[in-house]
Amino acid sequence: MAHATPKRCRQGGCGKTTTERHGYCEAHQDQASWGSFQQQQSRKGKRVYTTKAWKQTRQHVKNLAKCLCINCLTKPNPVVKSGSICEHIIPVAKGGTEQLENLSFFCDSCAKTKTGWERTRTVNEILKRYAHTAIKLNL
């Protein structure tokens, strides 16, 4: 049986070669485990957003918001801006649910601002600032 041709390690900037099927040299072979990658993704909660149920919920919220950023519409000087992100008002990591009362539709800039701001805030502070954007209030 012929030996495998040595190929460059998949780790960026490594430069070493390997004949392993996973494509990593001995120094980086710990990164070859697909199972650990899947575990990391599920721990981070990213797999939830690829499920059929979440995609349907997101589309429902988008339709209820008429594809507009609810946060921009409810500011003191309202701006009509297209939304693109279905956002949890109270993050799941802080006890938020997938219920419509906890979902809103934001534009990219509002979602980014909210996500950065809420990291160091309590649930009450988040509700005080963003409860008005709940999708049920806008029906």
Rank of each mutant, 00 (worst) to 15 (best):
V48M: 05
K75V: 05
K112I: 12
K62L: 04
I89E: 07
T17L: 05
A65E: 06
N63S: 13
C110K: 11
P6K: 12
T133S: 08
A65F: 09
Q29V: 14
K52I: 05
D30F: 12
T120E: 11
D108G: 01
N124A: 10
E98K: 04
I90V: 13
R129V: 09
D108F: 08
G13H: 11
E20P: 00
C110P: 13
E87N: 13
L73W: 00
H88A: 04
G23R: 03
T5R: 12
Y24T: 02
K112G: 15
W54H: 00
S33A: 09
R119Q: 13
H3I: 03
R8F: 08
A111K: 04
M1I: 12
I135C: 04
Q59N: 08
A111T: 02
H60V: 05
T5I: 14
T122N: 14
G12R: 00
C67Q: 11
V92P: 06
N102P: 04
L137N: 15
C67W: 09
G116E: 08
K62S: 06
H132E: 03
A111I: 01
E98C: 01
L137T: 13
T97G: 01
Q40Y: 05
N124Y: 07
R21G: 09
Y130T: 03
T122R: 15
I135Q: 10
T17V: 12
W117R: 02
Q29A: 14
H60W: 01
A131K: 05
W117K: 10
E118Q: 11
Q40N: 09
H28V: 07
D30L: 07
A53T: 10
K128D: 11
I90E: 01
P78N: 06
S84A: 07
G12K: 04
C69G: 09
S33V: 06
S104N: 08
A53M: 04
G13D: 13
G12T: 09
I85E: 04
G116W: 00
V79K: 02
K66V: 06
D108W: 01
A131H: 05
I89F: 05
A2N: 13
G35A: 14
G13K: 12
V123T: 05
H22D: 11
K112W: 14
H60T: 10
A27S: 15
V79W: 07
R47S: 11
R121E: 05
